[in-house]
Design a binder for these strands. Sequence first.
RNA 1: GGUCCCGUAGCUCAGUCGGAUAGAGCACCAGAUUCCUAAUCUGGGGGUCGCGUGUUCGAAUCACGCCGGGAUCACCA
Length: 587
Amino acid sequence: MNLYTHFRTRLLGVLETLLEQGVLPNGDLFDAVSVEPPRDPSHGDMAINAAMVLAKPAKMKPRDLAQKITELLLAEDEVDKAEIAGPGFINITITPSSWHKVVEAALDEKRPYGVSTMGQGQKVNVEFVSANPTGPMHVGHCRGAVFGDALASLLSFAGYDVTREYYINDAGAQVDVLARSAHLRYLEALGEEIGDIPEGLYPGDYLKPVGQKLADQYGDQFKGAEESEWLETIRDVAIEAMMEMIREDLAALNIRFDSFFSERSLKQGDPNLIAQAIAEMREKGLIYEGTLPPPKGKLPDDWDPREQTLFKATNFGDDVDRALAKADGSHTYFAADIAYHGDKFKRGFNHMIDVMGADHAGYIKRMKAAVKAFSEGEAELDVKICQLVRLLRGGKPVKMSKRSGTFITLREVVEEVGPDVVRFIMLHRKNDASLDFDFDKVQEQSKDNPVFYVQYAHARIHSVLYRKIPDAFPQMELNKINSQAEDLSLLTDEGELALIKRLAQYPRIVEQAAKTHEPHRIAFYLYDLAADLHTQWNRGIEKPDLRFINTDNRKLTGARAMLIKAIGTTLASGLGILGVEPLNEMR
RNA sequence: GGUCCCGUAGCUCAGUCGGAUAGAGCACCAGAUUCCUAAUCUGGGGGUCGCGUGUUCGAAUCACGCCGGGAUCACCA
């Protein structure tokens, strides 16, 4: 239940009445009418902009129209007060029992609080990570991985049918390099002295087991053989091993994909999917042979104007048309990506999201142009960019370089601080802002650490509900009683109302976060909710009658237990979206 | 030079279908514990929302132009 949309529906009823009375000429602008929490609590519970939005078509002064709306609103049984303020805002105060319904809604087990139907079951494809299968995941992949996974959960919570997908770049030159590197390790496993790994090959030890496996499986079959004889076989074995490793790395962060899509599969068959996609685009007249103008500004040294196969990306908002074929005639990465996204579209995804690193920002326009072109505007693609993460330890940057061997893997980070900390911190910042990750700070047990702060709130609630209340009221069985059995009208303290109002925000926050594809909004909300709880807790220090447990008042304790239980489930719900395990106790 | 992102308190950052007097944390200052975990909380000072123009009842938010920082720029992935 979303209290604000509930009252907006009531308001629309009022506006309909005014329409019938002829006060309003039509309902054209009703979509622009909003019911929102006011920034300033002295402005009541909800602020309505209807009079300002509709004044012009009604040919009335905003405040005069507001007067008419107000009169009808006051007749609603859930509205206590309605006042006109400022340029024509209508501020309403709703009945306490309306607020108390929020607690009931938050505890309703039949319909988890905050879930939304806004997605209407539409299919969404969230593609993320898609790291090259050439080695273990490093820390740079963390953020995109966590972000994509949380975004997928968020959209699912908001009513979409979500698929998490990983695009395996198993067709480019880099997997050939992988194969050569693995071949070297294979020779090593056969007892050959290989010395230093040559420049340009992957030096990591993680390929040693692959070499061993190859040696076990194929003996010396590929020893001294031409590359063409072993490249494919070894490449396939190596890629499979790398993907297995990547899947394990992701599992350490509690990330699992629904679908893995192989780039190479696009190149199989005759005609293959890439050729088909290009043919389709060509039929639409979007492909031509031509020469691109050289880049503006400084000319690259090796600039070589030549005719190539181009996609008319400029027809769809890109800055320049884009090449689909390389000099040697093979397809570009972009051509494969068009075919890939075209395939998503054919699989029924009208909503696609790509999560990429900041260095791919320049790729967004052409990809959006492509999607627009082949779907003829039916599909939409949103590309989310994740900015860099700076690793710090005690405020000092952690130096990383692949050469010196000090580069940090995703696994190392997760093993040191745990998946929950990694996930929450990565999500506690807008995706397109860079982020500092300080190993010391994120493990600190203090309010400076948002992960801890939120977890502590959840643990406090758990402690009260399942340790302290049973001590005080042994006959009170929390798991059996429900919000209807308790008298929520006893929740009248301003701090308690503040908590309820914060709870009421949750469905709004979920929808806003889902609409903007910004899971960090959930993290910030949880922080605010936790802060409100800690505040109310501490008010009980000065005023004992405000404590959640009043040993001489069973009814009041019961009502408050329902309130904090509602907060606890909402904290757990939000943490669930972020993929963070709520803790019942702090160690 | 083109494109994209960023510019909000001393620092790190929230704040987009445009809403009223712009928020939080850190840091700084002053306080709270016979009590469900003080692992927390309360109060205070601190701002030309980079600059300018425009759109309108109303702009941190939208449009255009500047300034500053970052990323990226045929063919690689």
